[in-house]
Amino acid sequence: MSRLTAQMSGDGGQWRLYVVLYGESEWPTVRFESGPVPTGADRREALAYLGYEVVPGAEWAWIEDSQKPFDDSTPVVLIASVDVREQEGATA
């Protein structure tokens, strides 16, 4: 099983969780309705729906960016990432 990266991003509206698949034009994605940051359980369920799981011992890391690169007067975009792997027995 190879290790991959899942990321989640949001700007105060809808949240999007996706698994980065290099060389692919479309990545497995789940969208959350607007509201608070999805909980750890919400993210785990979304990853399982996509056929992935957090690598044991891995933790979500958060950074912030701005909607327009290098313009800190624009709204903040939060981006989280974590190492994931395909779920055992998953067909991807």
Rank of each mutant, 00 (worst) to 15 (best):
M1E: 11
R3H: 09
T5H: 09
T5Q: 10
S9L: 14
G10M: 00
G10F: 02
D11W: 05
Q14F: 05
Q14L: 08
R16F: 01
L17G: 00
Y18H: 10
V20I: 08
V20L: 15
L21W: 12
G23M: 09
G23K: 12
S25T: 14
E26M: 06
W27P: 00
T29C: 04
V30G: 03
R31N: 11
S34Q: 12
P36F: 04
P36Q: 03
V37A: 06
V37W: 08
P38R: 09
R43K: 14
R43C: 13
R43W: 01
A46T: 02
A46M: 01
Y49L: 11
Y52A: 02
V54A: 15
P56E: 09
G57W: 05
A58Y: 03
A58F: 02
W62E: 14
D65Q: 12
D65T: 14
Q67T: 10
P69V: 04
F70R: 13
S73I: 03
T74R: 02
T74E: 09
P75V: 13
V77A: 04
V77I: 12
L78F: 12
I79F: 13
A80S: 15
S81H: 09
V82G: 11
V82I: 15
V84W: 02
V84M: 01
V84S: 02
E86A: 15
E86D: 15
E86T: 07
E88Q: 14
T91H: 14
